[in-house]
Amino acid sequence: MEGVGAAVAFWTLAGVTLFAAAGIMFSRNLLHAVLLLILTFIGIAGFFVLLSAEFLAMAQVIIYVGAIAVLVLFAVLLTPRAGRDNGESKMLLPAVLLAVCLGAVVLFVITDTSWNTVPSAPAVEHEPKVAASDLGEALLSTWILPFELASVLLTAALVGAILLVRSPEEEAEDMPS
């Protein structure tokens, strides 16, 4: 994609995404932060669309906005002190330290990678697009091992969650008496 429309879309999306990401940091209200996080996810899905990766964009919206963000909202609701003025944090110094370290790592990766930039030639237009079926085939043939490992991880997380939330009464019920 190229042209004026793409440029306008890129800069708008970049502005919205950065604004939302900054808002997550500075928002004193936990729920506002979560909603801004959702806006960030949607902005990133917009970038995927600009890169002609529609399937990735849709997966991003379904998984991050539709599922994960809603679960985070639920978690915020169930947090005892997620009130409207949830702002006092006693972990300022460790947080700043961690942020600086993380930023250094990301900056190092950005500067150290040799980015393959595509020359702005019209030849790019006829590049074969990656269809959803190609992704599926790659996932179930070349990358079958990580794919299956991810499902094992998810199953372990499920079992762990059930173990964590079981009350002693339920535990006693299942014991052979």
């Binding site: 399937f55 849709m58 919206v61 539709g66 959803a132």
Partner: peptide, 17 residues
């Protein structure tokens, strides 16, 4: 688009939020 069915599923999750 080639993924319009997924588009429908994705967008119809937004009004919940």
């Amino acid at each position: 688009t080639s993924v319009s069915l997924l588009f429908y599923v994705a967008i119809s999750a937004l009004p919940v939020i």
